[in-house]
Structure formats: structure tokens, C-alpha cells
Design a protein around this nucleic acid. Structure first.
Lengths: 344, 344
DNA sequence: TTGTAGGCGTTATCAG
DNA sequence: CTGATAACGCCTACAA
């Protein structure tokens, strides 16, 4: 009786998923499940003939090994999780999208698949907790964490604690292995020295949040101190940039050059400037940060501190792959540089 | 002896993952695994007292249910796969990114997690096969497929065949359920009629690939035929737009308005135009397609056919959630409209 | 080379 | 309300 019930359940599931299990498949071919398994595996001896036979039959009968069953024993596990803080809830984050682009292109070659896990950059403890849980529950074979928020740190610690392969992406993350890092401070200083060189001496810095290194680098390059320049923080994104422009104007200070914490801010800034008949770069020279793809096609083409985002993505994949493979990987430094275009 | 070996293996694994299993956890608390399971489940009677006790102990001892084991029985399965054709291999696809943004914001609320699966839009059968496999191997609880390529069709058929919850996103997908669709042809016709209305009678259409509906809609709105306008296809992305501008110029035809197949193309076009001292919109009025976020901050602000991409994403999630819940969902039509800004 | 059977970590059924 | 135990679908050590 009980058996019947079970059987019935089974049938229902088969209808639902349209899937055939290894047991059914094996018995249909008159071989054991072990042999089937071996046919799909690289290890384990099996005659080439039966392997081919099984493989052929598999496509004929539509047999596919169940993902979860495969992963259960601690084998396989081809999914890589990406965790990143959301710093602008009203539009896509081009910084992340560019990194993701790099990640994906490489991941695909490696037969891995990407799982994306945004979490609130500033608040939202509960969501971070759910991210922790995802890591702890063993659902993925590796994680890539974008640093820059409290949540990032928590997840980083979590990953370390369970010994799952991980890679940290971020500004001077301060660890000597398993990280791909860049130097915001240096990048910003490049912008600062450039302005100094071209004799623009009334600078402004338009920040997002939590980007002290950029501000500091800018000051260093400028050879100025914090009280000698105009600083404002309006958040991230285009709108923030436009708002920042208004703040600059309303400050009644003479400003002739600005560094923005990212390219979207810079574009928003320029957009607002144009609407107010302020000429870029004649009146105000502007430099963005990240050098996302649209920047070079912006009008005027946007100068920017290039972080080589897409490269960072591919490097992160290379690293985590080696990490999965048991190698230890020293932290990589991706060089940044200043790309001068029309806006400055 | 064998047992010892097994045990040893087990220990190794425990070290590797730093994880405690339900069995170990249960015995530590002096309860059965069933009780532990029930403590985390909504169904199944359990006294509030023991539940609390178990929950507390779980955080104390760091017990987290294994993801794959949970999903194995066909329960749970909270991952949603997104499949989309890559039409530009050199930069992020802003169309997709915007949809993904919408998807993610909604998915998070539902406790689901997104897995992204790009596949080549034009060739690359092998990768599509690997996508099929992902669907067939039961690794996810639902799939969202962006239509518009042969691969999309294959994956769509695959999803249907295994009875996995799915949603199709695309232009007039021609199915009456489980789809969120928009009408490129109508959108383009809006642009066409607008140009006609403002008396721009020397139009060009800058296409990507496979976007006949847009072209046709444009012609309809224009009330012209294919041989009466300039048409060129340069691919997708900024670079393509810039190339297209050159083609327009070199054609030596008088052109005074253009519709581009997406906003990136339009921006690239305008960028090249500016470099060649062609005034937008005075000399050439341009309208883009999709209305991605940067468009309104472009200089000049870009007119565009708005597809409400992010909304499409959230709707797709709502639909697949209901779908998972057993409801059948009639196809949704997301209205598109023409957003006029400075570039036209 | 192939088959047998135990284990992977949960959930759900069935008895108590 | 709780415990024992059979699935879930696959992999692999061991035996044949």
C-alpha cells in the first residue's frame, strides 16, 4: 500500500518534470546505473563502445543527470555566486554590469554559470543574512564578492569561514591573496595632477558615499587640502550628478574643474551643465571614474579614470578557477590610468 | 575498516566545508532529524518551544540546511534562470541589464535568486546545448527567456517540454500565455509618424540585425516604402552607431532624420555626428530605441521609444511567481511610447 | 569492464 | 508532538 503511494507520487513527478532518472534509463539500456554514471564521467574505466552506446541512447531518450543529485555528494558544483552592494536603487549599476560582462565571458568558457546576488549597500541586514545563508548552505562552488560596504565584509568573512573558493574585488582590499584589487586613490590622484598641470585651480569633488580614498587621492594630486576645494556628496547615478551641478552653481564659488566618483555622475553633471549653458570643458573641465563603455561616446567624450572593469571580471574568474583547483593565488593589482578625452 | 575510511572521508569533507549536517546537529541537540527539519519548515506540527530551541541552537552551532539536499527531492528550488542572446560581444547589453535590474529587484523580495545565462545570438550551437542541459537537469525552479534568436526558440521549446515554469520576454512572441511582450513595430511607427509630422522627409533607419519589425513600423509611420529611405545595418552598440553615421555621410544622400534600433546605436551616431560638425537635431533629428537610463542625460537628451524595460523585468517575475504557484498567466502587453527629448 | 550497494543531506510518510 | 526510515537521483568504493 505504502509502496503504491510512493509509486504514484513518482509518476506525478515524472509527468511534472518530464524527466527520466538514471535508474530508469539504465534499466532501459540493460546496464547498471554505475555504468551510466561512468559514461558521463572522465574517471572510471568503461569501454569506449558502451560509453558511445550510452551517450547515444541518452540523447535519444533525453536523459540528463539531475543537477542537485550530482552536486549533493560535494562533487561538481559549477555555479559561481557574485555578491555586490547596491548603491543606487533606481537604475542599473554600470560599474557592476561591466564587471559582470567580464565575468560572464570567461565563466562561460569554463563551463561555470553565474548567480547574481545584489544586497543593499547601506542597510538591509536581513538581505545580507540571506546572502550569508546562500554561501553557507553550499549551493555554489565559489563566490566573487565586490567589496565596499559592511555587507561585503560580512560575506567575505563568511566565505573564508567555510573554506569555499572566493575572490574579493575592490579598492586596496588589504589581503594578500584571493583578491583582484585596484587603487582608487592613485587613479584619483592622476586626475588631480592633471588638473594641476593644466592650471585649473578651482576644483570640486563630487562623491558618492564611502569613497574617501578617491577624494584623498584627488587632493594629493591637486596638492591641496580638503578645505581648499569644493566637495559634495549627492549619491550615485546620473541624477546625483545633475543635482551636484546645481549645488556647485548655487555655492557661488568659482569652480573650473571637477572629478566625479563615477562616470554616471559625471554624465549627469555635464548634462545639467549644458542645460545651464555652462561649457564643458571650457568653463569646467570634468573627469569621471571607471571609464565605462558609454563614456567614450558621450558628448563631449568623457575623460575618465579607467579601472578596466571588464578585465577585472575576467581576472577574477581566472583566479577563482585556480582557487577551485587548489592553487593559492596572490592578490592581483589591476593598473588604472587616466584616459583623457574631450571633457577635460 | 571500510567504515573507518568512510569516516575519514567524512571528516575531510567537514573540514573542507566547515559545515555541520542535520544528523550531527540533531544528535547534538538530542532530537531527531525530522524534528530539526520541521523546525525550519512551515508545514508539520512542532511545539513552539522546541522550534525556538532548535532555531536558537542553529545559529549558535551554525547549522544551515544544505541547498542541494533540500532541492533534491523536487522541493524548494529557488533559483530562476535568465537566458538571453548576446548580440554584441564587446560591451554590456544595456537592454538586458535594465531588464535584469527589474528582475532582481522583484526576485529578491520573493526570496528567489537569479542565475544568468547568456548565449550567442547568432551562432554557437554548443553553448545553446549547454543551456538546454541546464534547463533539463532540473537545476532551477523557473526560467525567463529573452526571445529574438534561434537559440531563444530552442530554449523556449525545451522549457515547455519539461514543464518547468517559464516566461518569455520579447517582441510579439505570438503565444497567449506566459509571456511579457512589447510591440517594436508599433513603437517604431510612433517615431515614423513623428518625423512625418515635423516634416522631416529624408529618413534613415539604422538597424542592428533581425529587427525587421522595427524597420517596418518605421516605414508605416513614415508612410513610405523601403526604397524611399536609407537603410543600413551595422550591428549593435555604440561603435555600430558611429559607423552608421559614416555610412550615412558617405552615401551622399540628404538625410534629416534617423531612427536607430537601440539607444547605444543612437548615441554612437550622435557622437560621430558631433565630431563631424553635424548638428543634432537641427541637421539630423535622431530617435533611439529602448529608452535606457542614460538616454535622458545624454547631450543632447536622447529621444527614444520607451519599452519600460525595468517594468518588463518586474512583470516577468510576477508572472513566473504565479506560474510557479500553479496559476496560468495570459500574456501581458507592455505598452511602449515615444519619449521626445532634445535629439529630435 | 561491469554490477552491487552504501552514502551524500534533506524532506515526508507513517507509527507511536 | 516526535522519532524512525524510506525516498530523492547520483557517484563511487568494492566486489565480481
Amino acid at each position: 500500500m505504502r509502496k503504491r503511494l510512493r509509486k504514484k507520487n513518482k509518476i506525478v513527478k515524472i509527468m511534472l518534470h518530464g524527466k527520466i532518472t538514471i535508474k530508469e534509463f539504465a534499466s532501459k539500456l540493460g546496464v547498471s546505473t554505475a555504468t551510466v554514471s561512468r559514461a558521463f564521467s572522465t574517471k572510471g574505466r568503461i569501454s569506449e563502445k558502451t560509453r558511445q552506446y550510452i551517450l547515444d541512447k541518452a540523447v535519444e531518450l533525453g536523459y540528463y543527470a539531475n543537477f542537485h543529485a550530482k552536486s549533493l555528494g560535494g562533487n561538481d558544483n559549477s555555479t559561481i555566486g557574485l555578491f555586490y552592494p547596491v548603491i543606487n536603487s533606481e537604475e542599473p549599476d554600470y560599474f557592476i554590469d561591466e564587471i559582470m560582462f567580464g565575468l560572464n565571458s570567461r565563466l562561460q568558457m569554463a563551463g561555470k554559470t553565474l548567480q547574481v546576488n545584489p544586497f543593499p549597500g547601506l542597510f538591509g541586514e536581513d538581505i545580507i543574512e540571506s546572502c550569508r545563508e546562500k554561501i553557507l548552505s553550499g549551493g555554489m562552488g565559489g563566490v566573487v564578492i565586490v567589496s565596499g560596504s559592511k555587507g561585503s565584509d560580512i560575506l567575505f568573512e563568511t566565505a573564508k569561514s567555510v573554506n569555499i573558493p572566493y575572490v574579493l574585488i575592490g579598492h586596496m582590499v588589504g589581503i594578500d591573496k584571493n583578491a583582484v584589487q585596484f587603487d582608487n586613490e592613485h587613479g584619483a590622484s592622476l586626475a588631480g595632477s592633471y588638473f594641476r598641470k593644466i592650471k585649473r585651480c578651482h576644483p570640486a569633488y563630487i562623491g558618492g558615499y564611502l569613497d574617501t580614498p578617491k577624494k584623498q587621492g584627488f587632493l594629493n594630486g591637486l596638492k591641496l587640502t580638503e578645505d581648499q576645494i569644493f566637495i559634495t556628496h549627492c549619491g550615485h547615478g546620473f541624477r546625483a550628478g545633475a543635482d551636484a551641478f546645481l549645488k556647485v552653481i548655487n555655492s557661488n564659488r568659482h569652480i573650473d574643474c571637477v572629478l566625479c566618483a563615477n562616470d554616471a555622475i559625471a554624465m549627469g553633471f555635464i548634462s545639467a551643465a549644458k542645460s545651464n549653458d555652462v561649457k564643458i570643458p571650457e568653463d569646467i573641465a570634468v573627469i569621471g571614474f571607471d571609464d565605462i563603455r558609454p563614456s567614450r561616446f558621450f558628448v563631449p567624450a568623457l575623460s575618465s579614470v579607467s579601472l578596466r572593469l571588464s578585465t577585472i571580471g575576467t581576472q577574477a574568474v581566472d583566479m577563482i578557477l585556480r582557487n577551485i583547483n587548489g592553487e593559492i593565488c596572490p592578490t592581483q593589482h589591476v593598473e588604472c590610468d587616466l584616459v583623457l578625452r574631450e571633457s577635460s
